[in-house]
Design a protein around this nucleic acid. Structure first.
Lengths: 141, 141
DNA sequence: AGTTTAATTAGGTAGTTGCCTAATTAAATT
DNA sequence: AATTTAATTAGGCAACTACCTAATTAAACT
């Protein structure tokens, strides 16, 4: 699943309305256009966005297109957002990371204690003149 | 919660990365800019989008801004998408809707049986000449 | 009070999006 | 075979977005 693509697809008022309509009933393009007061071509383009995100499976039956919403993808997306929300805060432990120039977490505690190298590691290189003075804010409060 | 606003906010690769970084640690703007190889101003603007969607609570501590991710809003969003996915298909019962011109669901079953009025109700008015011939596709297969 | 500096805002540009009308395609009926 | 018609694609336009550099703001340290 292309998470960003799916999110972009539903991050639009019109497409969200279309989805909720299609979850309840079949609609032909003209019925959707009528319901949402938009041109048929506009609806067709929105359907394309939803289809290419994997949210709709289309099938032609008789004269009309019948679109089915891929509920499973929506469930999957909900799961991914839930997983994101469940990411836990990590305590910064310089001694556990060999790429951190601080010897241990004590080097990271109070303002003024950080060496220039540690500060540059935590805050990135200053663009202009010299290093900033300040505490490393990558750690827990 | 402004659902569309929150979705738009996270429907962006860069902002999604920023969120995952901020869920684990505090970062100052320059550290984020450094990590994501973007200008500080760009990061600041992305932070604004996330903040205005309600996803970040910012607080100035010493020299640096400390942003906290509103995990509760992410949970809420996941719930809303889950709810969307759980919308059930409804069977079209014209006799239950006084705005539907079909007498009962039999009027809606087979191709050719729909009157012009019912077709117009289901598919919307045809833009040009006359009515289409065809089955109503607003009902269950 | 003056200086430093993290963060934001202003201003500008290229690329994208959402809408329209008009033209085209493809399938079903006559 | 010719016609009808649902849906899509093409082309065009205004509004928005993501990025940049430069200017500004506001807070903290001399």
């Amino acid at each position: 699943m292309d998470k960003t693509k799916v999110l972009k697809a539903i991050a639009d008022e019109t497409r969200l309305k279309m989805l909720t309509l299609l979850l309840r009933h079949n609609y032909c393009v003209r019925a959707l256009a009528n319901e949402l007061e938009l041109a048929e071509a506009t609806i067709s383009q929105h359907l394309k966005v939803l289809r290419e995100a994997g949210l709709l499976a289309g099938e032609k039956r008789g004269h009309f297109m019948h679109y089915d919403v891929e509920r499973s993808l929506l469930h999957e997306l909900a799961g991914e957002i839930e997983a994101l929300a469940s990411i836990e805060r990590e305590i910064c432990r310089p001694e556990k990371r060999d790429d951190c120039p601080a010897a241990d977490s004590k080097d990271c505690k109070k303002k003024g204690q950080c060496s220039d190298t540690v500060i540059e590691f935590c805050h990135g290189p200053k663009l202009h003149q010299d290093r900033p003075q300040g505490d490393c804010n990558r750690q827990e409060p």
